[in-house]
Write a protein that binds this DNA or RNA. Structure first.
Length: 308
DNA sequence: AGGGCCCATCGCA
DNA sequence: TGCGATGGGCCCT
């Protein structure tokens, strides 16, 4: 798949952009610098959920990116980017609290059953093995692009329910190609009006109600479907590790294979593959970009806090 | 063959 | 202690 990893260190050090404000240095650099570093730390702590770029932070404290980078590192001992990641990791670890019992509880309720608070209710069905092997032959899929809190989303609908959800980064073509690759034999028909309602429901938490669950269709191997079903048991605002999922589906040593299956989840966001983390709490990977994973996690943290 | 992994170990501060 | 780096095992496509 096209893994566009947007996690490159984002240091745009242009030759001309490095000149610090000379006037500011003239009187009391240390006090001034301290104030700026403090300001930067507060800024990052405040809005790590949005994953501000180095430039955002620099602009906020009134410095060039490279100057802030150097200054911050000198004072805080690590780069702004590293500091942001530390905050992020700390938050992710908190999400993992009670992760084992979370999956157990979900199982007792019945996967995706009613009773999970603050989440999109989902009923799912898997395609038959024959349908899976056909790679979508004879399957009519409609698709449409719609705005979402995480960039433009591509929704793919099968007659029985939502079959695919992805995101647009550079161009729509790439996102659509990604979906076509999953079911090469299926016919794809653009029907924006047809998928608009689905998109609206998926991304507007106000519309999430147990009495009208979201219907999704899971198309994959046996193993993959079991993994995806297990993902539906992780409540919003919580997280599990790859090995937790492996244990949950009765393959305690298959954590790595679980990782691969999670990565192939066709209905991202609705099947919450973003709630699976490495054992250390690190985010480790996301088909639609790690930054987006972070953004979704942050968005959910905000939702949970909002109606706490 | 090679992954969105994990655990044990081993060096460094 | 607490990290980062490494090596070997593991299991599904």
């Amino acid at each position: 798949m096209n893994d566009k990893d947007d996690e490159r260190p984002m240091l745009n050090i242009q030759a001309g952009a490095t000149a610090p404000p000379i006037a500011a240095r003239a009187f009391d650099p240390s006090v001034d610098d301290y104030a700026r570093v403090k300001c930067a730390i507060e800024f990052i702590s405040d809005r790590w959920r949005m994953q501000p770029s180095l430039q955002d932070i620099a602009a906020h404290v009134g410095l060039s990116s490279s100057h802030l980078h150097q200054l911050f590192k000198r004072w805080a001992g690590l780069t702004p980017k590293a500091f942001l990641q530390a905050l992020t990791l700390d938050h992710a670890r908190r999400l993992l609290r009670d992760r084992a019992s979370i999956l157990d509880a979900a199982y007792e309720v019945g996967l995706s059953g009613p009773g999970r608070l603050h989440d999109l209710f989902v009923t799912h069905e898997a395609m038959t093995p024959g349908e899976y092997k056909a790679r979508g032959a004879g399957l009519r899929l409609t698709f449409g692009f719609h705005p979402s809190p995480f960039g433009e989303a591509l929704l793919v609908a099968a007659p029985r329910g939502l079959a695919g959800l992805g995101f647009v980064d550079a161009d729509r073509t790439a996102a659509l190609a990604d979906m076509r690759r999953r079911w090469p034999q299926a016919s794809f028909v653009e029907d924006e009006a047809g998928t608009a309602g689905l998109a609206f429901r998926v991304f507007d938490p106000v519309t999430w109600r147990p009495n009208q669950p979201m219907r999704i269709v899971l198309i994959g191997t046996d193993f993959e479907v079991r993994v995806w079903e297990a993902l539906l048991g992780i409540p919003m605002g919580r997280a599990a590790t790859y090995s937790d999922i492996a244990r949950r589906i009765g393959r305690p040593k298959a954590a790595r294979a679980v990782g691969a299956a999670v990565g192939k989840n066709p209905v991202s966001f609705v099947v919450p593959c973003h709630r699976v983390l490495g054992a250390s709490g690190a985010l480790t990977g996301y088909h639609w970009g790690l930054t987006r994973k972070q953004a979704i996690i942050g968005w959910e943290a905000g939702r949970v806090a909002a109606d706490g």
